[in-house]
Design a protein around this nucleic acid. Structure first.
Lengths: 224, 224
DNA sequence: AGCTGTGAATGACTTCACAGCA
DNA sequence: TGCTGTGAAGTCATTCACAGCT
């Protein structure tokens, strides 16, 4: 996108892969591996070797020719590049099934993201304890964001409430939002929004699944 | 050039957007709208108008020049194209926080995906009721897939168990898998796998967030 | 006039292929 | 020798711009 000048620009497609490499490298480190070639890393990450090398070259990684990359050093570089040198604090808006699952999801904390607040509007949910946190009222959002230094907001409310949740987060100064509501959100260009629509992922699978059985007989599941 | 095989080929990038259009059209239909222009639909979907037109043209949609697309007809075409003319049955492997949330996630059923089974290996979880289903033992997978005509498997187990879960699903004949475990899965090319790594989504946000403050105070060390 | 459908132009990303270093 | 780093070539996707229908 319109990355301002200043630092080298890394293509979006490459950025999306860096976390995968990071994850693979952590596994390698656990196994005690000291170096890794682009080919080995590619195999683990499910991409090809040239892509790995180019992706890493975007931020001036230095492998050793004839040997490969130093696992520990590459982890350090990736951590710095991905901004994982400190924990990022997140707040979750919406304490339904999904919000609750996200709040207690161990995978976040392990990878440097700490959920420091969960809010909802439903009195039934406010006060309940989820993943070590007490669900707060949505009106507390501003104070939670300010006091706990929140950088990322996660939207896990029904679609009809998602835009309002976004507006509130933005008002509170949050500029990075992960949206799980199946709706397109409006916000200033300053605000980064990533959408994860779980049903869309299934629809994409269904699309391909449906295509391969053009020739298949009466095998398709019958209507519910 | 387009591969001149049996059916029309739709670019992957376009396929990923069709469900978004579908979702927007459902909203339009609810509002009682009869027609929609590519520009209006683009605005709702958060893309540009030329893209909408090209995407729809891939499967021979027919809008009316001077007027736009017939909302109801376009929904029908998209449903057919996306294979949403019947419900898809899904089984979830892993009944932890995430698996449980997915099993009771209303958004799936609304969009044509029915969760017909949830299994786990943990005796503590087996027998529990989640979203109207009783959690089964993982050994029941084969019978659930066969008897309930499951087409899609959802993996919501810890990374260390994900490959085994995949192998089991594939053995049972499942050829479309949605993987929430943060690990790259191995399977034959026949099997389609889509990965959703929630922590990666946050990492991508963090990357951009970290970039916009080059002049960050105490956090970013400046390496040579 | 208004808006779609689409070739052609542009841009982004991927892969190739090889020079050059350890 | 083995493997990285990278220009150049190739592939895929997006956007432009306009002919052509209603």
């Amino acid at each position: 996108m319109a990355s301002e000048d200043g630092r080298r620009a890394i293509p979006d497609a490459a950025v999306a892969r860096l976390p995968v490499y990071h994850r693979c490298l952590l596994d390698l480190e656990t196994e005690g591996r000291v170096t890794v070639s682009s080919e080995q890393l590619a195999e683990m990450a499910g991409v090809n070797a040239a892509k790995v090398r180019k992706d890493l070259s975007h931020f001036g990684s230095y492998g050793t020719r004839g040997v490969g990359y130093d696992v520990t050093q590459l982890i350090i570089d990736l951590r710095r590049e991905l901004g994982l040198t400190h924990n990022w604090r997140c707040v979750i808006v919406g304490a339904g099934n999904l919000g609750s699952a996200l709040a207690s999801f161990a995978g976040f904390r392990e990878r440097g993201f700490e959920v420091v607040g969960v809010v909802d509007v439903d009195p039934q949910r406010i006060g309940r304890q989820i993943g070590g946190l007490v669900v707060g009222h949505e009106d507390e959002l501003a104070s939670i964001v300010a006091e706990r230094d929140v950088a990322i907001g996660v939207i896990a409310v029904p679609p009809a409430a998602a835009q309002e949740a976004t507006d509130r987060l933005v008002e509170c100064g949050v500029r990075s939002i992960l949206n799980f509501a199946p709706t397109v959100l409006d916000a200033s260009d300053e605000v980064q929004i990533r959408n994860v629509d779980l049903a869309i992922e299934l629809q994409i699978l269904a699309f391909h699944e449906g295509r391969r059985s053009d020739d298949r007989p009466a095998d398709a599941p019958s209507p519910a």
